[in-house]
Design a protein around this nucleic acid. Structure first.
Lengths: 153, 153
DNA sequence: ACAATCAGGACTGGTAGGGTACACTTTGGC
DNA sequence: GCCAAAGTGTACCCTACCAGTCCTGATTGT
């Protein structure tokens, strides 16, 4: 279904929350969970992973919590997905070579690699900060160019 | 993991095979299966679904088989995915509204809808015929524009 | 008539998503 | 110095769905 998991979805919501408070905004997992309407254990699980991946900084002990490791402009949707689900690839063979026995003679393999790369790049270029803007949106548009490196002037 | 299922992957390979023979190229499921290195029941299952979805035309009886319902330029990767996995959406709420209780106040919902739409469009614009070209590739590129309808001149 | 072929299910095993629980460590505050 | 409030790590369960098989029927060319 070309779908992110629920955990990733939650992760993005939690990060967005952290991105929307003035930095440095340390928030406890319980606060974040209740704000997002998630059971605490679930939120905690996700936050742990995001911290280990380097997207969050954790502060242990009383009055501890989580805060963004980088400004929200420098954390992309792609980063979050990669942290919670592993490398982004539309097919098994694109994310982990050697899985498919057909690899040698598969007629569509290289194309899938290109398609995956395009989607990955696309997600990599959407920062958290953009997710939050409730105002006029820079329309996301997927373009096919005739040649590399020849963007609009 | 933002991944198409194996069935979809197989489906695209099978369709590509049909697209690569001169039309009207009726091929039996057994032939297609052995060509793709798939067990016959698996290939058969997939072909049935693709036929019901209108991407393939089936011919029953002796010397029957499958052929493309439309020229390969008019069948897109998005069509195949939709046929085998249902509507394309990166999150549950984008492909089937009403699933998420948070829908009303989810801060990132509209953005996901845009992102999903962009990916869906992108896949919708890659025809089977393109997957087969082994020659210089029109680079796939996902672009973000400032405004709609203002592509390169 | 018969064999080749597709159609439509039912059925099964495995794995990953989604969620919970618990024992442990760290740290601020009194 | 102790306690409570945090995060850490790991183990665990359950369910759904992916991946794959099998069987019984309906068509149709020869």
């Amino acid at each position: 279904m070309i779908r992110i998991t629920r955990e990733t979805d939650y992760g993005i919501v939690l990060l967005s929350r952290l991105a929307s408070v003035p930095r440095p905004g340390v928030q406890a997992a319980r606060e974040l969970a209740s704000w997002a309407g998630l059971p605490y254990p679930m939120a905690s699980k996700i936050l742990k992973v995001l911290a280990r991946a380097g997207l969050l900084v954790s502060q242990r002990g009383a009055r501890g919590g989580y805060s963004l490791a980088r400004p929200p402009e420098q954390i992309s949707v792609g980063d979050v997905i990669a942290a919670l689900e592993g490398p982004i690839g539309m097919t098994e063979c694109t994310s982990a070579p050697g899985q498919c026995e057909q690899e040698g003679h598969c007629p569509v393999r290289t194309r899938w690699q290109e398609i995956s790369a395009a989607v990955r790049d696309f997600l990599q270029r959407i920062p958290l900060s953009e997710l939050l803007r409730s105002t006029p949106l820079p329309l996301l548009h997927l373009e096919r160019q005739a040649a590399p490196g020849q963007g609009c002037p």
